[in-house]
Design a protein around this nucleic acid. Structure first.
Lengths: 207, 207
DNA sequence: TAGATTGTTAATCGATTAACAATC
DNA sequence: TAGATTGTTAATCGATTAACAATC
């Protein structure tokens, strides 16, 4: 299979979410043009993205909504639940643990870790905050495959290393540092300040 | 001035942050190759990004660290503070209000709004949560130019409309919906579930 | 059959990388 | 001067868009 870009994958999730909503209505099919219009993308983009994974449509009539939804769900891993650990139980970590959207979308936040004694033992939405020393053991016990880092910049690298040592392959990083991890580890950075910064730049240069 | 991509702007902020750290040491200059190496980018990329805004270097010796830092800070709007409002004072909104990184980077979260009566009046890091009805007035009083939306999906569009009506030009949107706003409004979406989803896809297809 | 719409190939666009003359 | 490094132009790469034959 050829390399598929992150852009394509992200848009496929967008199509899937739209199809899930459409499936509730009575219409059975949708064209690439209609689907694209609903999510602000061109018909060509929709067909191209889908084409990486096979042929899902019927010439002249479009795509069967429920069938495409189910195929995409399978392809994108939305037919299964993912166990997730949160490292850092501060304000952001707690907010993520409390965010109902994750579970709704198949992500079960089942473990939380923090180094500060006063946080350890606290329960947040049914998850007990554990000490960092328990990280490896707890992750293995709970079958966690993905982790979110919400610790301050200074502790992020160490947290990442503990996660890698525990066998985690996939990290969502909210700390403003770039993590140094082995090449096979998939890291996605969400730098909140950076988002704000690019926004402020474009505001400054438009006003 | 020709159109500059978001990628370039984001990287310029990365260079700036690196230069701020470097300025603390005694070395006076740095080459594009060294700077690039520190932030995992090529020397060509560094020079190209900078070239959109002028000539900052000296052939043979590189860039004066403090001088480039100051020039970039000016260009990127980091020589001023930005007033920011948070719409939605739930877990995520509260976490953002409590996050010290924003203020450190020049973003002052000075207003917070929520529709739920039990949240109104609460103080979070010195900011009092106000009712949605106060949004326009408060934003004008405080000179707010940027807003962050952290309300649930169902209320996001309405929140956006109130912000636009209040004169806000720039929105950071954490709700999982795509906002419909006039073309001149700059919206940046941060879809936490989507980040998690793309991550889970690549994990699934690599294991 | 005629109209609609697919899947795919070719054209375009934009961003990154490589190369190098200019120059400190 | 010789070595280092810039700023910029040209080449490459990858992603998006347009076009259209195939086909339901």
């Amino acid at each position: 299979m050829k390399k598929i870009s992150e852009g394509t994958i992200s848009r496929l999730f967008t199509y899937l979410r739209e199809l899930e909503q459409l499936a509730d209505f009575k219409i059975p099919t949708i064209s690439s043009a209609e689907l694209g219009e609903r999510v602000n993308l061109s018909d060509a983009q929709v067909r191209k993205d889908l084409s990486y994974f096979g042929q899902f449509g019927v010439s002249g009539s479009g795509y069967d909504i429920r069938k495409l939804r189910d195929r995409l769900a399978k392809i994108l891993g939305k037919d299964q639940a993912w166990q997730v650990a949160v490292v850092g139980a501060g304000n952001l970590g707690s907010a993520l643990l409390s965010y109902p959207g994750f579970r709704l979308r198949g992500f079960k936040l089942v473990a939380a870790f923090d180094s500060s004694p006063e946080k350890i033992g606290r329960r947040i939405k049914g998850v007990t905050v554990e000490p960092m020393e328990r990280l490896g053991e707890s992750i293995r016990e709970k079958g966690v495959e993905m982790a979110v880092i919400t610790v301050p910049a200074g502790s992020a690298q160490q947290a990442a290393e503990q996660l890698v040592a525990a066998g985690i392959k996939c990290i969502l990083n909210f700390s403003p540092t770039s993590l140094m991890v082995p090449a096979e580890i998939i890291v996605k950075d969400v730098h909140l300040c950076r988002e704000m910064e690019t926004l402020s730049y474009f505001l400054q240069h438009r006003r």
